[in-house]
Write a protein that binds this DNA or RNA. Structure first.
Lengths: 373, 373
DNA sequence: CCCCTATGTGGGAGCGCTCCCATGCATGCG
DNA sequence: CGCATGCATGGGAGCGCTCCCACATAGGGG
């Protein structure tokens, strides 16, 4: 343990006290200027700001945190396993957005990887002790108790992606349904007749939305029998078994192997498939392999569309048409939302919450056209 | 700004004082137990630990930091542009390693993206004010002043990768030279006659090492008579004389486009090239494209080897043989090294530094054989 | 026998900051 | 002309912790 007390070379930088002295004002006044309180005269403000600049003053976070009871930090929590799965652009782009939005806030970003029960408990305890002011949760599983735990201890939290259609914890999501719809409409527009889909695990809400988008696009195109109209996100799982009117659905698990297997299954069920919408780029890569093995050319014989616009998509041969989510913006929005929640949180008595941001947000998706379709 | 003072619902958890009272000891003693000081009797220790468990005590970081003068946190600094370049497994694996190693230390991991001059200065100031205890720098450019700035203000720092052969700032690197050598030896071993290389920007030390590995492997093969003559190509022998066989070197910039261009150039210079060692997987992807355009089959006509073992490598067709670095372990090692430095740092007077870890470390690389060779 | 060291312990003194109360000083009005 | 009202200001009181000094108690020499 470092011993920092006895006049070490630890130049800890100037203190508020010194700034105040330099500016010829009191500590309180200097503090007011630094925290942008309006109740300071213009003269004084200028004097203090000058002193700050001259001394290169940087507030001591620890002291501030201790005195104010807030930690001026938010945690970004990433489940370890997902780290690998979502590795692609998702994580780093979320990070970029979060970091960018936080840059002007001078809150710290604390990164926590949760790899097992133990670290989960540890973090929960940490949060319960209010060691951070808010939490961002990335790619949470439907059965993850963490969001509710945080809620119980009054820790503001924002999810990236809903866990269910009735998500009650604040979240930022992307429009999976519309994205999928765009993709399938695109395939139909290119003259494809038999459009299949490879879904993610259907116990995940995002996967269900993408499947719903597939169905809606086909229904809209009037290709099939009569699906009871605008069956939105809330629609309960569609039974692949009962796929009406030439719908070809295979469930996979967002992995490449899963996509490979699903594609083979689809080809077996209907060799005349001429287009496939995959609910992730990685699965599309697997499907691509299966198509190659079966001697089919992409896009001539079968058109392929993915989801995510990850690096894999750009590097496939041919490059993969895919649905892009505004991931960086999602990160930014999560931070804005969290800051909003944090502002509200600490005024339990019916204060006029500055609700600049709704507690839930769905951002648009976009089709990126490439060679595979 | 939240007002946390007046008896809010902010359950800040039990304090040391309360723990001490519960255990029937003084504050100082409780503190000693919690920080693992040896000068406590076994009875007392047990009592305090019991109290901690019963109360669910979690030390308040802010208070601890303020009192101890250390922040119990280290920063991981990532240059924004690199974030994209290294996106692949590199960043997330470093992160995993760092996080894993930090888990037992209960130091916080603070993530800082540096995107421009302004944020760089901001961070420098932050570090200078000792708001973190140490800094991990990922993928630093050769001309980045940050490492030296940190050094000047006495902030311990560890680099991932040297900036030059004479790097004086502590670092953890991987054995680029040997990795490259393995790759090229492998190609030669597979009976390839004309092995070319596409390098990274040669003002980067890692790129230079990989090129050196290429040369050494060819030289060694020449010495053992492994390589049958045919000294046709007028390749500039950068290295010691007597280059056995022609060397084919093209410089690129670690990008896919660069790899593409370099490969075309190589094919033009010598159409009989039958193997290429690329200093990164991404460049290999570019080279792959150029080879396809020229009607060459991989690996039949030209064998390809990359470097990094990134996702791209696995998703190429055929999957890319590549050189893998122990990235996660590098992250762990960086943390261990940094912790060591931090321990030393605060005892300037010739204390017996616990040098468990050298201030520089080079980890081994490994060849991953796949279909492309 | 007493002094001196070794060891465990209690608690004072801050760390640098924010909050808030008390103060000073103009201004407005009755 | 006096007093309420406003606002800018100074500085005390902690926030929860670590450091360290002082104090006990317990030995081992001289």
């Amino acid at each position: 343990m470092p011993a920092a007390r006895g006049g070490d070379a630890q130049k800890t930088g100037p203190t508020l006290e010194q700034v105040a002295a330099r500016a010829g004002v009191g500590r309180g006044t200097a503090s007011r200027v630094i925290n942008g309180s309006p109740r300071v005269s213009e003269r004084t403000r200028a004097a203090v700001q000058a002193a700050v600049a001259e001394l290169g003053y940087v507030p001591n976070r620890a002291a501030r945190a201790l005195a104010a009871g807030s930690m001026d930090a938010i945690a970004l929590v990433v489940p370890e396993q997902e780290n690998r799965l979502f590795a692609e652009p998702y994580f780093s782009e979320i990070l970029r957005g979060v970091s960018a939005e936080l840059a002007d806030t001078d809150k710290q970003l604390l990164l926590t990887l949760i790899r097992d029960e133990r670290s989960r408990d540890r973090f929960t305890q940490y949060a319960a002790a209010h060691r951070v002011d808010g939490v961002l949760l990335v790619s949470v599983h439907a059965d993850d108790p963490l969001p509710d735990l945080l809620r119980d201890v009054g820790m503001p939290a924002v999810l990236s992606g809903r866990r269910s259609p009735a998500e009650h914890v604040p979240y930022v999501d992307s429009d999976n349904l519309l994205g999928a719809q765009l993709a399938v409409e695109h395939l139909i527009g290119r003259g494809r007749r038999k459009v299949a889909t490879i879904t993610g695990p259907l116990d995940m809400y995002a996967a269900r939305c993408r499947l719903a988008g597939y169905h809606e696009a086909l229904t809209a195109a009037g290709r099939t029998g009569h699906e009871p109209g605008a069956r939105a996100a809330a629609a309960p799982a569609h039974r692949p078994a009962a796929a009406p009117g030439g719908r070809l659905v295979a469930e996979a698990d967002f992995t490449e192997e899963g996509g490979h297997r699903a594609m083979r299954e689809l080809l077996e069920r209907d060799p005349e498939v001429d287009a496939v919408f995959c609910a992730s780029d990685v699965m599309a890569a697997g499907a691509r392999l299966a198509l190659r093995e079966s001697g089919r050319d992409v896009p001539r014989d079968v058109a392929l569309v993915g989801f995510d616009d990850s690096a894999v998509a750009r590097h496939m041969d041919p490059p993969l048409t895919t649905v892009k989510q505004p991931i960086e913006e999602m990160g930014r929005a999560m931070v804005r939302m969290l800051l909003g929640l944090m502002g509200t949180e600490s005024t339990p008595r019916g204060a006029p919450a500055p609700d600049g941001e709704r507690p839930q947000l769905v951002l648009p998706t976009e089709l990126i056209r490439r060679g595979s379709s």
